[in-house]
Amino acid sequence: MTTAAPLLSLQNVSKRFGGLSVITDVSFEVAKGARMALIGPNGAGKTTIFNLISGFYRPDEGQIVLDGVPIQQLPSRKRVGLGLSRSFQNIRLMPHLSVIENIMLAQQPHAGGLLDMVKPIALPGFRRWQREAEELLDAMGIDTYAGDVVATLPYGVRKKIEVVRALAAKPKLLLLDEPAAGLNAAETEGLTDFLKRIALTGVTLLVVEHDMGLVRKLCDDAVVLNFGAKIYDGPTATVQDNPLVLEAYLGPRHSKTASGASDQKGAHHVA
């Protein structure tokens, strides 16, 4: 379905911990500008895939190519510079830094030169990066006072700030690990719009998410994992029609009785 070269491609990626194979021969591609979901039951290996892409782990086999560059051997901090950025399942903002400082920290790939390191960041005449961070916060509709220390902020706000922080690196590809976890329905609604706006700016999204409502509203395509292997790769709309997917979520007995159950209720059950 894509004509141009994909932004991200995983080619026959495998990962073992000890003797345990957690990812087995997974390949998929994320097209430029796509909004793709990575879903699967608990323990399917979604976060492991994220960790392989972002550089926490090295794959035992296979290649990970970002925008034409093989990245699987690069240290994680160099991958950011190539346009890869991510958020975390459990918020990992720096609790003792303010909102604005967290955002500024993520500008590192663009401001990490020796001279930039020793220039003050918050003194008159040196506020370029701070202004940029403030503009980003404004553009993303974060209206909390930017000087607040993150530890003092409510959960929902921190969750949003983490996405904004990932954006501050100006990524081509944004990996979001369960962005809606722990949010209520209204907050999830807000987040969905927020992420759609981000996608409109040309950023490619790859999202791990359990909330199928969000996945269907946000993502056009989905990759489904089960026990570390890919079982589905295609449009989000038809994901519930796939017998393998149903089996993965509901067990073998349901795959027959529930096959073809593509109505809304069934979909929520899958979530």
């Binding site: 972002s54 550089g55 926490f56 240290p75 994680s76 901090r77 160099k78 950011v80 510079g81 991510r86 975390f88 990992r92 720096m94 609790p95 003792h96 830094l97 400082e101 500024m104 920290l105 993520a106 590192q108 790939p109 401001a111 990490g112 930039d116 390191m117 020793v118 220039k119 960041i121 990066w129 922080r165 690196a169």
Partner: peptide, 20 residues
């Protein structure tokens, strides 16, 4: 920015590294 990264590394060195 050097000080900023120092303080960030104090809070979470893994993520600081990941941020570049």
């Amino acid at each position: 920015r050097f000080g900023l990264v120092m303080r960030a590394a104090h809070d979470d060195d893994v993520v600081t590294d990941l941020l570049g």
